[in-house]
Amino acid sequence: MELLNIVKKVSDEIIKNKEYLTDLDREIGDGDHGVNLARGFEKISEELPKMEGMKPADVFMKMTMLLMSNVGGASGALYSTALMKGGAVLKKYSEVTPEVMVETWDEMIKGIQMRGKAVKGEKTMLDTQIPAFEEFKKSVEEGKSLKESFELASEKAKLGMESTKDIIATKGRASYLGERSIGHIDPGSMSSYIIIKTISDELNK
């Protein structure tokens, strides 16, 4: 099942980048982003064989539970909320079309905004997610394929992630640093970029 292959690859990439994400977080946050996320995705990776034959909505819900119970800190709450909201959308459909993906991703972002009480431009994962989603939505509406839409979204995700270097943090532990948070990439925006780029790479294989 393609979804499970993508989840496996995303898990591998997060685990592989554990130290890097933790180093980014050490500069402006609690220093646990990579360690926490990797713990959650290690669990997801272990449980993947049990997800064979599951509907996409159920895969999302299973991942939600695994992240909730294994990832501490804000990242666990944000990513699991996103998956829970996305799973609720997928439940309504028998087929995952590009249009369904647009609705799913939109709800996931709303979940992150609701949970994190953040908007774009505050040096968070939303600075990666929102530009990527907007590009994805536009591409799907223009009739581009899922692969092409994700590829274009991935490019915008990269620009969004890089933009966090120039933003003063106003959310989370990084906000205590004020102007000293400038010059550092937000770890949540980087993990979001890794996830989006990995999905795009897998679809384009």
Rank of each mutant, 00 (worst) to 15 (best):
M84E: 11
L37G: 01
N70H: 14
K117R: 15
N17V: 05
D23G: 02
L203V: 08
G73D: 10
M68Y: 12
N17T: 05
M101T: 04
T170M: 10
I182T: 04
Q113N: 08
A77S: 13
K85H: 12
D106W: 07
K205N: 14
V7C: 08
V10G: 03
E155Q: 14
A153C: 07
W105N: 04
T198A: 10
D12L: 13
G76N: 12
A157W: 06
G121K: 11
E122A: 09
G183Q: 11
K165M: 13
N70S: 15
Y79W: 14
G76T: 10
V89N: 03
I167W: 01
D12M: 10
G172W: 00
A118M: 12
E42W: 06
L177T: 03
E179Y: 06
S163T: 06
K8C: 07
D12A: 11
F41D: 05
K91R: 14
M61L: 14
S94Q: 14
P56R: 05
I28C: 00
E19F: 03
M114E: 14
E135D: 02
K137R: 15
P49H: 12
A174C: 07
I185W: 00
K62P: 00
M125R: 04
V71H: 08
E148F: 06
F136Y: 14
S163F: 08
L177H: 01
I14V: 15
S149H: 08
S94N: 15
E148H: 08
E95A: 11
D166E: 15
M108N: 07
L159E: 15
T104Q: 03
Y193P: 01
M68F: 13
K110R: 15
I182Y: 03
L177A: 03
